[in-house]
Write a protein that binds this DNA or RNA. Structure first.
Lengths: 342, 342
DNA sequence: GGAGTATCCGGGAGCGCTCCCGGCCGGACG
DNA sequence: CGTCCGGCCGGGAGCGCTCCCGGATACTCC
């Protein structure tokens, strides 16, 4: 055998030669297949260790047709993304959950039109085995594009107009909103405003709907009591100011995310309103770094991104295993964590 | 030729057959090599388009020994990561800058010990051509591990004990801090406290040093005027409270990051201190979503993550091209953006 | 004792691509 | 007119791996 130069990475063939077995046996030992004697396995493992062998993934995936990588697509405008700690939590959770099933995460950001082309081109390049798509928004061309390439895909959060026939995991946004607003109604609040997130995404739409329906059910007219913002701190602050100007007598506000609630709290404090004395505040997300850390600590609807991602990953894995999973939405429950702000 | 089933992805061979040329010519046309007639090129391109061909990356990188993917490693504890918008900005910038040079970003989070093993195993798997490492902390075993695999690597921000001989791009943290504190001194402040970031990372250490030296130069004793926090909002709030308790008469505070400044502002407001009347506040990062959005808008040291990432990527690309780039630190300038908080 | 079976192993094919090499043209040049 | 050279093209090898298949051996069972 030609001695291989020092700085080149050893191949399976090298390991086999070193262990005194055939390439096939080495492969079997490394992938712990059956039908390898304990002795051979031992030798191969030792050889691999000694040579510092690690398999060439390109070669492997060329024949297995599996890359071991999953794309996580964040289809969201940059400003929202940067300011929303929930997204960061999602990325992190995605990384962990995928690592747990032995997959690598490849993050794709896709909001501008040129991103879309790049994203699609990448996905059809066969770099990944499957896709997790978060927070697609209305008129987002990505879902349709994904349907064309037939990559296994699971959505996290629905676009307003997402078609049937997809796999999707979401939280019970409307139910969470109802619970939050019911809590406010039951504690005697009557002029309950809301700061809703961007109405081109499913979650904010559902939360707004939950707020509206609960008010109507309680015999309260929701007209003029809602304001839309963009999930950022500054957006929340501005929306709160607008609400105060329009409805000076409001006694509660349901805010569509923790980050916007931080902004709303600031505006309320600037305006001299006491929370919860004058105005009760309830938000959504229950972010561990934000909700409990505010003054006063925020009552918030709790949703755990890891739970969502976990469900998405496990559905995706079943899809990859060729299981015939019926498409449809899996709705995860949320709970209300009551703190001092309400 | 055996007719290939409909749902299989077409190969280069298919494209060649369809175009009536050889596989070699098809390859040349697609990779726009020289020595292909315009006619052949035309036909190949049309065939590729018609068949919906996209090259198999595994096969390509098996022979080229290039994957076109770059790992971005965030070596930071989870809590910090989640609450620090600067990190999100870095991820985003990394994605963009890498996309601009035709590379894919593979994000790796690496803070726990088990992460390290996973990270190293992944990197030596040959999945990526190079690595960008952000914010390694003191005693982080990652840099040493990276040195062993000889993957081209560029660091963003230095660990306290990072060895010589690495490629690194960082901001002028100490200079930025000096500028911020000088600004406070010149506007007549004397009791200038600081809330420093975690002292196991280079940036917070340098910022603290800049604060200290500037005070000493101005004849002010820094003793008892500093508090360490963890880059989170809650941490900033707590540190501010501790400072107020210890030094009730402080008239300014230099905060090591925007997010911590948000927390400090809240504590100051809760304590009835007027900003900037009683206490001037200057922070670091100048995050677009935070600094200008606070009440009052924050004076902050401006640093642009894209600039840092751009420099890192361009160094890495030169490394990948086999250029013999001299190792060393590239220090980027920062500037002070003065707003109402000081 | 021969047929059948379970265990273990090696050889060979082939995944889809790039790249090298050699062959074939046609035009320029002595 | 023969030679040479540059543009253009096809065939083949080979990247490092997995997987199939057939051979070898040992062991069981009628």
């Amino acid at each position: 055998m030609v001695p291989r130069s020092e700085d080149e990475r050893p191949t399976l063939e090298d390991v086999a030669a070193f262990a005194g077995v055939s390439r096939s046996t080495a492969s079997r030992a490394l992938n712990d297949d059956a039908y390898v004697s304990a002795r051979s396995r031992e030798k191969v493992l030792a050889a691999a260790r000694d040579l510092g062998y690690s398999p060439n993934q390109a070669a492997r995936s060329l024949v297995t047709r599996r890359t071991g990588a999953i794309a996580v697509v964040l289809s969201e405008p940059e400003a929202r993304l940067l300011d929303d700690p929930y997204r960061t939590a999602v990325m992190r959770a995605g990384y962990r959950e995928l690592a747990d099933v032995g997959c690598q995460m490849v993050l794709l950001f896709s909001d501008t039109r040129e991103d879309l082309g790049r994203t699609v081109r990448f996905l059809e390049g066969g770099h990944v085995d499957g896709v997790l798509v978060f927070a697609p928004h209305r008129a987002d061309p990505l879902p349709r594009a994904l349907r064309l390439l037939k990559l296994p895909t699971v959505f996290g959060g629905q676009a307003a107009d997402l078609r049937r026939g997809v796999h999707l995991v979401d939280f019970d946004n409307e139910g969470g909103a109802r619970r939050a607003v019911t809590h406010l109604v039951e504690s005697g609040r009557r002029r309950i405003a809301t700061i809703a997130g961007p109405q081109d995404q499913g979650a904010p739409i559902d939360r707004l709907a939950g707020w509206r329906k609960t008010l109507v059910d309680a015999g309260i007219d929701p007209a003029g009591l809602s304001e839309e913002a963009d999930f950022t701190l500054a957006g929340g602050a501005k929306a709160m100011a607008a609400l105060l100007a329009r409805v000076p007598g409001l006694d509660a506000v349901f805010v569509g995310s923790d980050m916007m609630a931080v902004g709303a709290l600031r505006t309320l404090s600037d305006a001299g309103r006491d929370v919860p004395g004058d105005v009760a505040v309830v938000s959504f997300d229950d972010n561990a770094a934000l909700a409990p850390a505010m003054t006063p600590p925020l009552t918030s609807v709790h949703q755990d991104p890891r739970e969502q991602v976990h469900a998405m990953v496990s559905t995706l894995m079943r899809l990859l295993d060729g299981e015939d999973v019926a498409p449809g939405a899996q709705i995860l429950p949320v709970s209300l964590v009551v703190r001092e702000s309400s």
